[in-house]
Design a protein around this nucleic acid. Structure first.
Lengths: 255, 255
DNA sequence: TCGATGTTATTGTCATACTATTGCGGCTGT
DNA sequence: ACAGCCGCAATAGTATGACAATAACATCGA
């Protein structure tokens, strides 16, 4: 069940391409993704010790440098911890940095479960509601206009990918308008959530769903423009809940 | 040559020791912290290219292995991106993973500005309000009891450090009770915020402040026990706001 | 003028050796 | 028989030097 059939790459590429990133394709990244996936999938359980360097070296056929840099990267994301004579231990899940784009991508690579998507929607609600409220309080005409424009682009989007792009841009703008650097830092989270939702079920092909989605986003934009933080809160909650409900409903129907 | 004065270590130790972690003391970590601080402080500005490996090698007096692993760690946290022939570029701040414990620690190391503390309080409000509400909805007697017990420990804490420990444990329990893994993952954030607040001004030595703080935490615990998500929301908001107000007020008074 | 091409500075990768840390098991002394 | 010390060995940490891949830039040619 390995992906060793030639140079087939991890499918994080899809997500990366949507977000406009251009991740380097090097050995380090290959090893990183394979180990990252193995850990997130539970193939190496929490608290377990992974094979020693020498074994992993054989397995991947790379130099010690590459392997160790991959391990350092995993350690930086809170997935593992290396200690001399003990080995490299998988840390408990609550130490994992779930707000990291790669870690999230690994979860999605395994096929996101509905419970995971729900958790994601819950944090998004918490953070983005507050972002919307702050954006309303600190409303700047320029950004408000950009938000409105973004909604119009969503309304006329012709492909699911276009729609997702403008949706993502909308949420990014709200974060920016909040003036809080932490809000902007969760764009990876939003990106994943939207990518998942868009993959599972895009509203583009369903006129009714499209209308609902656009209108709730318009409510957000207008509330921010008008400096109405209460309305912004409510609208943002609706927007995220609806997105999740649509995806979850679809998953249920199909699965 | 190493940094003047022998083995003087970065002061993140204080934070680490409070939180019970036992960070490795190795060369890699030294280089990491020095570069991390330099970047966060703006000594290397966004978009700027840092000196090439060879220069940094001279500067730190370590092997290429160590330097490169430190750089990989910084890259994993979203602070830099290295490309052949170009150099190693400092990424724009919105790519930084502010939810990373190290990155946060570097911000605090520079002396947290009141605006930064406010931003932190804002995200905490967003996330922890939702966590408290979820905890109320999914209330489990066992955890509710633990929360109540935690409050009692806060009430009788004799030193600021003890108080901070129980405070931290309280918020950790709420996150756990929410049943949402993302909520637990932000403990690093809470940790930093509380450590900062505790450093700036602990309520332990002020009976009135202590009473207020304890009572608001008790309100949270009771609301969760009673399954009252609305009350839990309100109380959690109060708790975080009060903590921030106290620290901010103290900062203002002093300077 | 512009496009192809070589040059070169910089990161990426490799191989090997040595050092530091620390759990474990055996040794020693009581 | 037991406790504590102590050295062994397994593992990650560090060092060094070489070569490969990449891509901006200068150079050359049409």
């Amino acid at each position: 069940m390995d992906r060793s059939g030639g140079r087939a790459r991890h499918s994080g590429d899809l997500i990366a391409s949507l977000s406009g990133r251009n991740p380097a394709r090097n050995l380090h990244s290959d090893v990183l993704w394979e180990l990252g996936l193995a850990i997130v999938s539970g193939q190496y359980a929490e608290g377990e010790i992974l094979p020693p360097d020498s074994d992993l070296l054989d397995r991947f056929g790379v130099s010690r440098t590459v392997l160790r840099e991959a391990l350092k990267t995993l350690a930086a994301k809170g997935l593992i911890e290396a200690r001399a004579r003990i080995g490299t231990r998988v840390l408990p899940r609550n130490r994992w940095n779930l707000f990291d784009a790669d870690v999230l991508a690994w979860f999605f690579e395994l096929g996101p479960e509905v419970g995971f998507l729900r958790s994601l929607a819950e944090v998004r609600i918490g953070i983005e509601i507050e972002a919307a409220a702050l954006a309303a309080e600190r409303s700047v005409p320029e950004l408000s206009a950009a938000l409105i424009a973004c909604v119009e682009l969503m309304a006329i989007a012709e492909t699911p990918a276009d729609f997702a792009r403008h949706d993502l841009e909308f949420h990014r703008l709200v974060a920016e308008a909040s003036g809080n650097p932490f809000m902007a830092s969760i764009s990876a989270l939003v990106e994943m959530a939207l990518t998942a939702a868009f993959t599972i079920s895009s509203p583009v092909n369903d006129p009714v769903a499209l209308g609902v989605t656009v209108s709730v986003h318009r409510r957000i934009a207008e509330a921010i423009r008008d400096g109405d933080s209460h309305a912004a809160r409510l609208a943002m909650r609706d927007a995220i809940s609806q997105g999740f409900d649509r995806a979850a409903g679809r998953m249920e129907k199909e699965g």
